[in-house]
Design a protein around this nucleic acid. Structure first.
Lengths: 343, 343
DNA sequence: AAACATGCCGAAAAGGCTTTCAGCAAGCTA
DNA sequence: TAGCTTGCTGAAAGCCTTTTCGGCATGTTT
């Protein structure tokens, strides 16, 4: 057998082949394989066996062409390397994969020209719907209302309220984080967070302030906005301790920041969590599980965001009542060693 | 306009519509839009305008049905959450996206049943080829030789030498890492690495030993295998310093381990890099850029692995000479603050 | 003016599948 | 036995595009 002439070259079995082998017409073969009722059991059996023998796989292209539905969706992401897109993508893939939907993955790399290109290509392939995953929770431009298929935005909401967007509830995230710290008996809580240009940073700070206000308290100092990095966590902590040595909890805008904060606390002789409790956001395993002690963090349930987006899209494709607006999903606190009740 | 009856419902334009609007036959319309030469310039112009007006997008399903090629490939990954799959996926998506190929993403979650299911589904959709991305460099079971489309394995090689696999060269990675440390004038080099069940750990250790042997040196102590975690890095470093306080470099099997190593070195009063140089593997940004000093690391060029796999698959689809066996791609040292010449 | 080449265009088939509808045989009732 | 219902099966149309090939109107040559 020559290298190029394996079974690879043998014409893939088609329904006609199956029908011929089973001694029936293609129509009957089709009905037999699809569980239609107008086929005698014995005939169906023959067809099924023939299909088996030829390892027949119905051509989804032909099927999609006929049905007008392809059973495919496009997943448009702006940054794959960012860590937020992945869990969402997993959740969506999971929700679809359970059914019989296949996912086209496209990375626009944050470039709207590329994005437009991908949208056109996906429409050419007649996807049944689109999920758009952003890298930040700040609103992003809508793909427009003129698309021939439903679209769901995940993580980054569309700026058009007529679109449906699924996002984590960052305000509530800030609130539950503070509530956890209050539950631990902390009252002198500082907030060190990232780039104020990010809505997520502002939302979380707002939620944190609101929860404190509900308890008749306030943040120690204003929230310190900076960068989403360990370095900023370290720098801000040094400043914080100089001005407020009596702080008993630091809520950090990200796990990276929290790592920097914990490093400096340790260097300054503050024990975590005995003297100062520390919390992060994102629940990024590589960071939370490597720190000493393990880091308590707020998980944004991104996988669930992905799943919810997939389900919403599914519903829209099936023709359910169209939803719109920004729907938020709750976050959850994952408690580890860096927070504990004051003893 | 009722909510359900937007332009969404308006029948997507088809070539017939374009032809009718332009006052030509579908055959002519097709030729005009595809740059075939047997069309008068003026006629072509009319057709193009009509297509524009109707925002016509040729149906790729029909096209694929006819051509026998769909311009799609399946990307089968075993673990999306693992950090190795993503860059490979990005590289592949990039290499394909440049052309006109769309990528079906499937996550098998490490389950071979799921994997089989996905393969069948993808074949049903008549993908032109398959890329299989593993989560470890240990060989994995082949998908088999009987598939009707070419397959390329990335990161995790197939156990069938008849298949083509693209993997990073971990042995060489260990070698170049040690060479860098030698260049920095280090001679008492220890190796703390991860789970010995991983081929990557053993390969890197082998490469490191080989490079040292070439220089007439040997590792300080045997490589310390353990886990891919900061915690192990800390524990192993404590042991190491007790037995070999004169060590002047630690080569770590991953960036996580390296972070743990650096933490304990600092605690024990060893300066990095003045007293002890530290290197990691993987060049994982979140870890390398958060440490003090910034961490030198070996980058496995995973994006390039993905690109190379995509290109190989592309070649195989186009019918080029079939390649087979395991092809390795070189890694590269990314020098940062944690390694420096002895002064 | 006849014969020919040339340039454009359109009818039709193909690709694989599903669905509709007509046809046919067998079994039943009157 | 004629007429009817039931139960299966198959022919054919349709989904959308590309490609082949025949045909028609020019323009060109002798």
């Amino acid at each position: 057998m020559t290298p190029a002439a394996g079974p690879s070259r043998s014409h893939t079995a088609t329904l006609t082949d199956v029908a011929r082998l089973a001694g029936v017409s293609v129509a009957t073969a089709s009905k037999a394989l699809n569980g239609r009722s107008q086929v005698r059991a014995e005939t169906r059996q023959r067809v099924v066996e023939a299909a088996e023998r030829l390892s027949f796989r119905p051509n989804q292209l032909a099927r999609g062409l006929l049905a007008g539905r392809t059973g495919t969706v496009g997943l448009l992401t702006s940054d794959l390397e960012g860590r937020f897109g992945i869990p969402i993508l997993m959740g969506a893939e999971d929700a679809f994969g359970a059914g019989e939907v296949a996912v086209f993955l496209c990375d626009a790399r944050g470039d709207s020209i590329r994005e437009q290109h991908h949208v056109r290509a996906l429409l050419g392939r007649r996807v049944d719907g689109l999920i758009v995953v952003g890298s930040r929770t700040d609103p992003r431009p809508s793909l427009g209302r003129e698309l021939p298929v439903p679209v769901v935005y995940a993580y980054a909401p569309s700026d058009d309220p007529a679109d449906l967007s699924i996002v984590p509830d960052n305000v509530d995230a800030g609130r539950i984080a503070v509530q956890h710290l209050l539950t631990c008996g902390r009252t002198r809580i500082a907030h060190i967070t990232g780039d104020p240009g990010y809505l997520a940073a502002r939302d979380r700070a707002d939620g944190a302030r609101a929860a404190l206000a509900d308890a008749g308290l306030a943040l120690v100092d204003e929230p310190r906005f900076g960068a989403w990095s360990e370095g900023w966590g370290r720098a801000a902590t040094a400043l914080l301790l100089d001005r407020h040595p009596d702080v008993d909890a630091v809520l950090c805008g990200s796990d990276q920041i929290a790592r920097g904060v914990m490093d400096v606390l340790r260097e300054r002789g503050q024990r975590v969590p005995e003297d100062v409790a520390v919390m992060g956001f994102d629940n990024w395993q590589v960071l939370t599980s490597g720190s000493r002690p393990l880091l308590t963090s707020v998980d944004m349930n991104l996988e669930q965001v992905g799943r919810a987006a997939a389900q919403a899209l599914f519903g829209a494709i099936a023709g359910g009542a169209p939803r719109s607006g920004v729907e938020t999903l709750p976050c959850r606190v994952v408690i580890r060693g860096s927070t504990a009740p004051l003893s």
